[in-house]
Design a binder for these strands. Structure first.
Lengths: 216, 216, 216, 216
DNA sequence: GATGAATGAGGCTTCATTCAT
DNA sequence: CATGAATGAAGCCTCATTCAT
């Protein structure tokens, strides 16, 4: 993303070469999310990225390394962007929570990377190292984001003085759950849930649940 | 054969034969939840159940059939018990919601079958048939349970007149998410969340979010 | 077959017990002929004979032993009967050859044991011991039968003075081939050949081929 | 890729890739003929072709596909050659029959593909589709060949006016039987028959059986 | 760098054989 | 004797990984 302007000046095959890892992780993400780690074949990943099986090994030393790259690189840019938005926000805490919720949805949930949580929860036990990384680098930062919002609201008197720590994962849960659902049971047409009304209901419940007086 | 009504009179190997499928699905559940479908080796399932690889095939015709049996038989009894409790309940809607929430936790979340949701969400795309079954037989019944609680509260004036349908999965989400979490990121000690405070926070948020006046 | 009269005096379950091996070899013959040795499952053999898998091992110590029994016991009675008929025969050598040919067809080819040649030719290399047994006990006796017929005809001047030894397997071939065909390509409707016209054509060719003057 | 018409310019591994299927079917033919379909292990086939187990699956998608390739590709070239020889033949019908008989023996019976008939007759019931293919593409063409010879001889008055259709499989039988025998009971030294005298006896019998006057 | 043929360890599944009842 | 549950060796097949071109 940064310095995308000078890419134009590079010869085409060079640009291609530099883009390869990202093309591969993108293809791998889709397949890992769809089939899970074990059921994903590297040959399919390579084919989806338009290269041969051997080429994949020029960029990633093993299936596990590819998996880690997918998970490591997936959410961090979106998280950073979310943190920036929050830092720059000025307005009511209710609106801030809406900003955070919609932001998580637009930057993550509605993107391909929105499949990563499903992947993580599915594979955490097989890759404890990944689980730890993910917890520290992603979950804790998401938690910090929510915490800052709730603390801000409680401090300003806008929110009730709730027990903050346990509340954080609870507030996070419906957003995460929606992401997971979208990549699993949503394949059943009957189980599909529209995002708009889901998020509106979410804010309705959570803000009424948190606000001291009227929800603004 | 003789006196088949009296289990005691059955020959030992016959009693064994009747218990085997349950022993096998129990072992399989643990391993499927821990490792996922693809990464679970049938030999390990058999060993965990104390039998040899071949024995498994006397009771289940394939790995997939075993998986389906695990999922099919897992939650249905607990669901039925939950529905019974709700039907027999008399008290405030807030207490009913607490009853349902704790019930789901005690009957499902805190049991081994509490790993099934993780399994389902992880494998739904690989087993669309299972996904459909699970949605129809489990999810819809859970939804109906929550719906009846919210409708009851709204009808009695205890709850605000919220949009009920979108609210259901939102109310369900923190419970499901907790079950999933328990079988994935909970392996990170730092990510572990105590059930008691989680559920208390959950009821605090949801009941404040739903109730029209004071939460009872 | 011998002493079949006193069977009546035995208690039923005793008769059953004595009949078991024959019932098992009969069932095994059908399946071996249909599927070949390796593809035949002992469970299917037992089921076809109406007993359990374990029972089979009370009478035959292994799959190979069962196979040998099938082959050993199959053709010998029919051969003996054929030899008896030839010994008692008086008439022209042409008629004797017709008698032998029809006899082989009626006593063997048209019976279930008519599948044994296909079985032998298919499995001879896997069971050299069986092949040797079969050659010595069955083939050589069949050859001797044909030889005696040809020698008789040549001696009487009815047949041309052909080279007898090479002629024997040639004369035998169409009969064997018909038996094999019947248990293989005859499953293609289009490949089915009527026995009557086949045998008539056979005698027409062979007798014209052997006879010195007019065929009688 | 470059100059694909010139095999010499192809990279070695490419030339190898093109030769592999034939090397594999050749190895498979030997083993299928020797042991039968079910008793042949793909690992042995691969080893006989000098490759590993996995390589086989680069060229044939299953054991059954390999089997079909062996049967499909085996006899067709030899048949075509045989048909060509017959079409170009000019001479007496007796000599034509000798030409066909010897041709079948030299082009098929004496070659490795001479084991295919044994294989087909042994496995026809397990592979009805193969049986149909074989009947239509091979047997019927062989029958047509013999029919044309007999019809030619009857038309010219050289052969008696026999019933042609039933005669065809009878005339074919000793040749087929010899091929089958060669790959089965010939392992018994005592059962071995010299080809030369067998074929001479065959022509002696069949031509005396068919010819109207003296055999030429 | 890029390719794709080759490898072989490993998992699912079958089935001959055993043995407690 | 008869049963059928249990075993485990063995075969088919997949796929992550390597390496010659």
């Amino acid at each position: 993303m940064p310095a995308s302007t000078n890419a134009v000046s590079l010869p085409a095959h060079r640009r291609r070469k530099e883009a390869r890892p990202a093309e591969l992780t993108a293809a791998a993400l889709d397949l890992f999310v769809e089939k899970g780690y074990a059921a994903t074949r590297l040959e399919d990943v390579a084919a989806a990225a338009g290269v041969s099986k051997g080429t994949l090994y020029l960029y990633f030393e093993s299936k596990e390394a590819l998996f880690k790259a997918v998970v490591r690189e997936g959410l961090l840019p979106a998280l950073a962007e979310g943190e920036k938005r929050v830092a720059e926000f000025s307005g009511s805490s209710a609106d801030l929570l809406r900003e955070v919720g919609w932001g998580m949805w637009q930057l993550i949930g509605a993107q391909r990377i929105g499949g990563i949580p499903k992947l993580i929860f599915a594979e955490a036990r097989n890759f404890p190292e990944i689980a730890r990384f993910y917890h520290e680098e992603v979950i804790l930062r998401g938690i910090a984001l929510i915490r800052s919002v709730i603390e801000r609201g409680v401090a300003s008197g806008e929110f009730r003085p709730v027990a903050i720590e346990p509340m954080i994962p609870i507030v996070l849960a419906p957003l995460l759950m929606r992401m997971i659902w979208r990549h699993s049971l949503d394949i059943c047409e009957a189980a599909r849930i529209p995002d708009e009304s889901y998020l509106n209901g979410y804010f309705d419940l959570v803000l009424h649940g948190l606000c001291a007086g009227e929800v603004q």
